[in-house]
Structure formats: structure tokens, C-alpha cells
Nucleic acid binder design. Structure first.
Lengths: 244, 244
DNA sequence: ATCATTTACTTCTGTATAGAAGTGGAGATT
DNA sequence: AATCTCCACTTCTATACAGAAGTAAATGAT
């Protein structure tokens, strides 16, 4: 979120602290299993008052990077976008149970980035990308298909890994196999008619109305890691937001 | 958001304060043009420390009810949903200028609430509702049409007011003419094919893909005030969200 | 008259302190 | 062995105070 390149004196201390803490989280110095150092320890270590540490923490909590539990400690919150996409689509079982969609890689190619992908991923046009075509299924029926593009050099292991070993969730894979952590994403929703390729994968007829969700996922340093276009039938789409 | 019916002792002071302040905003005691009382004044008035007032304020700022400006004061932020709908639709002028859509009431009826409307508005089925059919236009061309339902008893003046005097924005009208203030809303997006009635009003052919945005707007006491269904052409629809 | 300074307000930052409240383990009691 | 109490730790609430920094108007000098 924050650039955090400059040492940033002249910024308030609590903001400097916040950046410092954010960096620790990004670099994995603060893991998500055990608590981060206590407010007292941090205050002492940085030679500031506890209240200042607290204020820095509060910012990170508000941004969703940290989570506080009274009596226990403060923990790194690891975001889980794995199932986030399915907010958009009604796929509750008949009795309202939570359905765990499975994933299958239909195709994997390595291609040079075109103009659009290059800009989305902030790389030079022509940079080699790993492009995945993936289906998300419930009860064996495809609900969603996705075009995924990641930079080949950052995700080299995924160019070789057998596609049937990718598992259902990509972001944990990115983390474990490539050391790339997704902390943030933007999504844009629009509507379109199904192309023959997508229609076939979704077992629909071409021209059917689709919801298209275009996501760009960012790493802790703010650089885009992945571009993903998800296609699903428009009549299953439903999304609620809250305005103030 | 908060129920705030109970006097709520045993809650932390700063939360009680927050509720108290929220009530002041809702009731219009704190207007949106001049600043609310300063932290010092409020602390003195409520016999608490300034820091406690501050913390209460911070909550309201986070919720978007207040806005602080250093050196000047703290102000009530009046939400403006008037143009919010148009976040969803690309209607930038060729040169990126901001377009001010106009509104025209096409039809007004008073009908008893059906099951769905009744539940959305939290009234008994059969309660008289004012139903408006409205078009939003840019350059004289309809971009959006809306079905609007409000409780006739709460909005009685609008049953009589000539429809050409409604103006372009409804919420200010609700406030000024009926004393009903919208502070919050939820919107649900889905996709559908155009019915003949809507298609005609939008000057499209029936069956065209539409984006349907269903909004329920709430007053300060948390009661639903308005139910609104907006229809626009799907190919102009585009919406971006941020995930964390 | 115009410009600079002071003054009086506001919110913002930072420190220090005290005790409440939740959590979990060590040790005593039953 | 099971339960209870106490203790050491955590975050949370609340207070008090000092000075920084932004804003705007009154005041004074040129």
C-alpha cells in the first residue's frame, strides 16, 4: 500500500513505525502463526511510548494486515482470496451448505506479454508470461473459467510443475512454491457475451451472457503479481455492496 | 448501523459517546455546514477526557459520518448517493468531462405493497406505496430507468407534488419535503434480460442484456426508506472494487 | 491601503500512568 | 486425577499534560 522506499524522517513517528511494521510483515519476519512482539517490547525496542506503537498498530489493523486479540497478542492476518470470487456467484447447495469448488488447469502456455497484460502486470511488452486456463467446478460441472497470467521469471516453478498438482487454490501455491505473497487485489466487473472458447469450457452456447471479473492481485511491495479474468454465467451472478 | 436503543452502561465510555454523537448527527442536531463542537468543549460537557472524545470521533470518522480538518474543526459528512449509481456505468463524455444526468418521472402510482416490496421496506403487505417509474438521461437519451417504491404515509407530499417538479435528485427532495434522511444503502447487482416495458423506456429491443441494481436505502434509525431497482444496458456497465 | 505579526482557536502528535479485562499456565487444594 | 486459585502476561480503556501544526481573524507597522 505504502511505498516505504524512503527512510521518511519528517513523517510522524507512528507512521514511520507503521511502515517499519508493514515491512516486517511483508518480509515474513513476523510470521502469521505466532504473535508479533508485545506493545511494551516494541515500545522499548524503538524507544517510544506504548501509545505510539499502539497507534501504528491500529493503522495496520484497519488495513487488515494485523489482528489483535485481547489477552493473547497481535497476529499477522493472512488474507484469503481463495474463495472470494464466489461471493459473486450464487452456488449455495439446495440446503444452503457451503460448497467447495474444485479447480482444474485446462491449459498452460508460455507467451510473450501483449500490450494489455504488460500494462496490467507492470512489465515490458514481450516479457514471458505463464498463461493458465482454469476451470472451477462444483459437482463436476464447470461454474467458472479463468484466464490467469503471471510473470514467468517470478513464478518459474509453475512452468514445470505438473498441472494436476496445482491444487484448488493458487495463492497458497504462489506463496509456498514461489515465495510470492498476495496481499491485495482489485476487481472489475463487467458483462459480455461468451466467446466460443469460453462457452465450450463452460458447456454453454456461444453468445450467452457472462459476468466477467477482472482481477489484478498485488504483492506486499505493491507490484502486480497476477492478472486474472474470470467468466461465469450472468444469471448466477449476484453481488451486494454497502454504501455510506 | 448501531441499534443504540439502550442507554448502554457497561459499554466503554467512548462507545457510549460514539452512539450519542451518532444520534446527534441523525437527528440533525449537528448540521453539516458548521463544525461540531470542539473536542475540548465536548470533553468538558460530558465530563470525560479529551482523548476519550477523540476515540469516539475516530470511530465515526472511520464509518464515514464525520470528517476532521486540522485547524478548522470536525464536520458532519453528508453522504451523496445522488450520483453514486453512475459509478456503475461508463458515461464519461468523449473528453472525460463529468456528465450530470437529468431525471424524468415517467409514471406515478399508488399501490398496495406486494410480498417482496413489503419485506424490503419492512412494512405489512398491502401498505400503500408510492411507486415511481423514472428515467435518467444524458443528452436527452435514456441511460437508466428505475422503479422506486416508498411508503405513502411517510412520503405523503410526494403523492401530490407535480411530477415535473421532482428535480434530478430524489434524496434531497426526501429530506426537504418529507424530512426523511437517507444515510446508508445496500445495493445488489445482477444481470437480466430487458422486459418489454423497460426496453421501451430505454429505447432498446426487449431481451437485451441489462444490469439490474437493486437498492434499499435506510434512514438514520436503520429503517428502510426506499426500494429502488435500476436498469441499465449491460454493455455500459463496469464496476471496480478493492479486496484485502 | 497593504502586508506582516500576533493571537486564539482548531486538530494532531507524543508521552506517561493507572487500572480493567481477557488468556493461559503453574501450583495448591480437594 | 480433577478442580481451583493465583500469577504473569497480553491488549484495552481512560486520564492528564505538553507542544506541534494548520486556520483564520484581529492587530499593528509600513
Amino acid at each position: 500500500m505504502r511505498a516505504a522506499v524512503s527512510p521518511d524522517t519528517r513523517l510522524p513517528i507512528y507512521l514511520q513505525l507503521k511502515d517499519a511494521f508493514a515491512a516486517k510483515i511483508q518480509q515474513g519476519v513476523w510470521s502469521h502463526r505466532d504473535p508479533v512482539p508485545s506493545e511494551n517490547k516494541l515500545a522499548e525496542a524503538h524507544k517510544v511510548a506504548v501509545g505510539t506503537v499502539r497507534k501504528a498498530m491500529e493503522g495496520l489493523v484497519a488495513e487488515g494486515l494485523l489482528e489483535r486479540r485481547q489477552g493473547k497478542g497481535t497476529f499477522v492476518r493472512r488474507p484469503d482470496f481463495g474463495s472470494a470470487l464466489f461471493r459473486f456467484f450464487r452456488l449455495a447447495g439446495a440446503d444452503g451448505e457451503v460448497l467447495r469448488p474444485t479447480a482444474r488447469i485446462l491449459k498452460r502456455r508460455i507467451v510473450p506479454a501483449d500490450q494489455v497484460s504488460a500494462r496490467a502486470l507492470a512489465v515490458a511488452p514481450g516479457t514471458p508470461l505463464i498463461c493458465l486456463f482454469r476451470a472451477r467446478c462444483v459437482d463436476g460441472r464447470p461454474i467458472l473459467v479463468e484466464d490467469i497470467a503471471i510473470e514467468a521469471s517470478r513464478f518459474a516453478p509453475l512452468a514445470e510443475l505438473p498441472t494436476d498438482q496445482f491444487g484448488d487454490l493458487l495463492y497458497p501455491l504462489y506463496d509456498e512454491v514461489c515465495g510470492e505473497l498476495v496481499v491485495r487485489a482489485t476487481e472489475t466487473i463487467r458483462f459480455d457475451a461468451a466467446s466460443p472458447r469460453v462457452a465450450k469450457a463452460l458447456e454453454l452456447t456461444a453468445g450467452t451472457a457472462l459476468a466477467v471479473i477482472e482481477r489484478v492481485a498485488y504483492g506486499p511491495d505493491g507490484r502486480p503479481l497476477e492478472r486474472r479474468r474470470s467468466y461465469g454465467p450472468a444469471d448466477r451472478f449476484s453481488y451486494t455492496i454497502e454504501l455510506r
